[in-house]
Design a protein around this nucleic acid. Sequence first.
DNA 1: TAGTGATTTCAGAAATTTCTGAAATCACAG
DNA 2: CTGTGATTTCAGAAATTTCTGAAATCACTA
Lengths: 193, 193
Amino acid sequence: MMNLAPLVQSFVLHFGEMGSRWGINRTVSQIYALLYVSPQPLCAEEITDALGISRSNVSMSLRELQTWNLVLLRHRPDDRRDFFTTPDDIWLILRTLAEERKKREVDPTLSVLREILMQRPASEAERHAQERMSEMHALIEQLTHWYDDVKQLETERLATLLSLGAKVTKLLEAKDRVISLGRGRRPNPANKS
Amino acid sequence: MMNLAPLVQSFVLHFGEMGSRWGINRTVSQIYALLYVSPQPLCAEEITDALGISRSNVSMSLRELQTWNLVLLRHRPDDRRDFFTTPDDIWLILRTLAEERKKREVDPTLSVLREILMQRPASEAERHAQERMSEMHALIEQLTHWYDDVKQLETERLATLLSLGAKVTKLLEAKDRVISLGRGRRPNPANKS
DNA sequence: TAGTGATTTCAGAAATTTCTGAAATCACAG
DNA sequence: CTGTGATTTCAGAAATTTCTGAAATCACTA
């Protein structure tokens, strides 16, 4: 069925499986995996051959990937076919994926929660439910604010921040000490603790 | 079909929809949403009534939730039925979810990638593919290391770290300045605000 | 304008996932 | 034991999602 180097095939199959566990169509994921590891951009026909699926399926899946801003189009001189590839930078891929899922799933969820929280509870059960939803809303807001904040960082800085991990809190303590020792400055107002 | 306070029903329906977009069975998600907002633990029969689904579906879905460590069992005196609920702390819920998904999806992906990377490429295409996979592997490792690190933090500290967001990098620069001052070195001139 | 080949669309087919009811199992009381 | 009611299992039904082939559309050329 598939017509791929064995090593690439393992990757494509696993990636397809993972995609479907995360709510992304198996074929769409496989196509993405294939584009990701291919040395040069592929046209639809090549994808059809490589994965052994129908031409129309490839067409629809590529369109899906385009609505996610996950693929790049390339052209060759004297050839009017589209060739597809992924960004070289895997961090950019991750950012795009995160942004799109936020837009499609997280933001609408926040809207729904806000809308429900506006309503007047008609019973004790509803009152309690609203309280719980409000906790969920607060959590999601906190996570998205963090996300909106760190996504501005250049990748190199983001990587630094990540590799620092929990050590940042040590740093925070250090900062507090320095500030209180030294220059009589106010603490950073973002520090809610 | 469903027999729920309207406000709760909106939540349960949306949550079910979201779950299925993230690869979690719609009914499983709905049950979880229901347990999450209910003021007291529910038994299977009550869930059946509330959601209008079959008793056996409830049974299987609850079992699924249990394998995810997402529900708590409660009992009433002189009643041998199980009653189900969720942890009160939504941060704990998030942590459990993250942990389980990492265990089921991220860790196996890392294994697969490592295994493929061990093999000897049999062609230029495979060589290039391995290079790309190695970038992906590095990214996932970096993310999971960060995750493993920050998950140790108490929730309050984690929340502080999140609300700090990108400001942490400012702090990093501050730290560098402080250190270089202390050691008689020059401050870092590359101070991008 | 007609012809060519690439591409997309979409109705129905196929595959997969989810759900159900009936039967089996279980846990306990009498 | 035996009876009772709660719970689970699982084969097949139902629903949903994915995929395909045929036809339509598109982009371009001669």
